[in-house]
Design a protein around this nucleic acid. Sequence first.
DNA 1: CAGGAATAGTCATATCATTGAGTACCCTTC
DNA 2: GAAGGGTACTCAATGATATGACTATTCCTG
Lengths: 187, 187
Amino acid sequence: MALRHAVLAVLLDGEYSGYQLAKIFDVSCSNFWYAVPQQLYAELTKLERAGLIAGRQVIQHDRPNKRLFTVTPAGLAELAAFAAVPSKPSSIREDLLVMVQAVDRLDPAPVIAQLEERAVIAAAKVELFDRMLRQLRGDLTEETFLRESDRIGPYLTCLRGRRFEQENREWCERVAALLRARAPVPG
Amino acid sequence: MALRHAVLAVLLDGEYSGYQLAKIFDVSCSNFWYAVPQQLYAELTKLERAGLIAGRQVIQHDRPNKRLFTVTPAGLAELAAFAAVPSKPSSIREDLLVMVQAVDRLDPAPVIAQLEERAVIAAAKVELFDRMLRQLRGDLTEETFLRESDRIGPYLTCLRGRRFEQENREWCERVAALLRARAPVPG
DNA sequence: CAGGAATAGTCATATCATTGAGTACCCTTC
DNA sequence: GAAGGGTACTCAATGATATGACTATTCCTG
C-alpha cells in the first residue's frame, strides 16, 4: 500500500504518463522509491479505478498516444491520511553488505572489485543529485530557496539521497582500501 | 534468493537457532538485512534441505527444545558464488521520504512529528551501533582492530549502519526544524 | 494462582515485487 | 531498406515479503 503513495507524491508535481513516471522512478526519484514500469502501470490502473487520480487521453501523431494522470482531491486526501499515520523505518536489504559481512571467510577479490565499482556508481549519483539540486533551486542559495520556495519536498528528499550516496561512496572506498591492504590482490 | 545469503553470512559467526537468528535479524543485523521470524524459519528449512546448513537438535529441560544450525562446506561455496556475481544497488523505499516529498501540499504537522520521532530513533541506533562496535573491537583501537583481527566483516557492516543512522538523524532534525520555521505549529 | 513475558516455533494467506516476453509504431542512421 | 533506439504499454508467472493467528512450555511477578 505504499507504492501508491509514492506515485501520488510524484504526480503532485504535474501531469505524467506511465512512461514518464517510469523514467522518474528509475532515476531521479530513486532517492526515495524505486519501481519498474510494470509496477507503475498496474498501480496507475488501480489508482484511477479508486478515483485517486484522473487520466486523460492525449492523441499524438508522431508517436503512440498516451494517458496523462493528475491527482484528484480524493488522492490528496489519501496522501494526507498516509502522512498522518506513523510510518515504520524501512528495512535495509543490500547484497553488497551481506558480502562484506561474510568477507573474512571468502576470497576478498570479487568483493573488493564490487566495492570499488559501487564507489564509482555512488560518486556518479552524488553528481546527479548535485545537478538536480542546482536545477531545483535555480539561482537562489540553498538557504534562501528552502526558506522561500513553496515546493521544497523534492529538494529535501534529494538532499537525503545525496547524503546517502556520499556516505556510501566513502564507506566503499575505505573498505576496499582496507581489504586490499590486508590481503594484497594481484593486479 | 538473497535472504538465504544473509542467513548464511550470519551463521558464519556461530551456531544459532531460528529464534536466536530472529533476534539478530531484528536488531543488530538490521544494518544490512531485515527479516521477520517466519521468513527465517522458512529459509532455514529450505537451506537445510539444500544441504547448505546442518541442524542439530538440542534437548532442553527448562524451556522448549531447539535446533542449532551451522554452515556446511556447500553453504560456504554458495556464499562464495554469491559474492562472485556483481550485485545491484538496493532500491530505497522509505515511507517517511514519500511524505516529505509531498509535504508542500499537506498539513506539515504530522510529518514534522514523525521526523522528530525518527531522529530520536536514529540517535538511539547510533548509540546501539557504537556499543556493538566497542564490543567487537574489544580494547583495541579501531585502526589496530581493522588491521589485525581475522573477523572484521561484522564490524565493517556495523560502521556502515552507524553512518547511515547518523546521517538519518541529522537530516530528520534539519528538515523538522526547517518545516517548523516555515509553518509554525501550535504547541 | 492468575497474568504476562520469554523461549521456540508453525501455518495460512494476501499482497508486493521481479523477471521475461510481447505488441506496435515512429524516427534516425548506416 | 535493415537495424537499432525511443515512445507507450500489456500480460503472465514466479518469487519474496508482510501480516495475523496459533501451539506449547517455562519463568517471574504480584
